[in-house]
């Protein structure tokens, strides 16, 4: 499987670290909503077909990427830096270095 890093170009999957499902939103760190945290921690949509997911180019430029990849064919239809997606950054304190 080749992943085209927007910075480095096409690279082998071995250079990348999978960071999981991007179909979920972490509650605000200050939130005490137990149900929302449970859903974030445990529940997954487990998509068949195009799946939004995070990868890090850990063996390259170390960028965090958001991919849309088919879980049936492994074909990647979209690759972008996580920050380019314009996702709203949480105002609260985040773990240093964590993806948005």
């Amino acid at each position: 499987m080749l992943i085209t890093c927007p910075y480095c170009g096409p690279r082998d999957v071995i250079e990348f670290t999978y960071q999981g499902d991007a179909n979920r939103t972490r509650p605000d760190p200050a939130s005490t909503d137990q149900a929302a945290w449970n859903v974030y921690t445990y529940d997954r949509v487990n998509t068949l077909g195009d799946h939004a997911e995070y990868w890090q180019h850990s063996g390259g430029c170390r960028s965090h990427l958001k991919l849309v990849r088919s879980t049936l064919t492994h074909a990647i239809s979209s690759t972008a830096f996580v920050r380019d997606h314009g996702e709203k950054k949480s105002a609260s304190r985040r773990k240093p270095g964590a993806a948005t």
Binding site: M1, D12, V13, I14, Y18, D21, N46, T47, L48, H51, E53, R69, T71, L72, T73, H74
Partner: peptide, 13 residues
């Protein structure tokens, strides 16, 4: 392999 998939085949790493 470590990433979500429904394909019954894996990758080389």
């Amino acid at each position: 392999d470590g990433y979500n998939t429904y394909a019954q085949r894996g990758n080389l790493p």
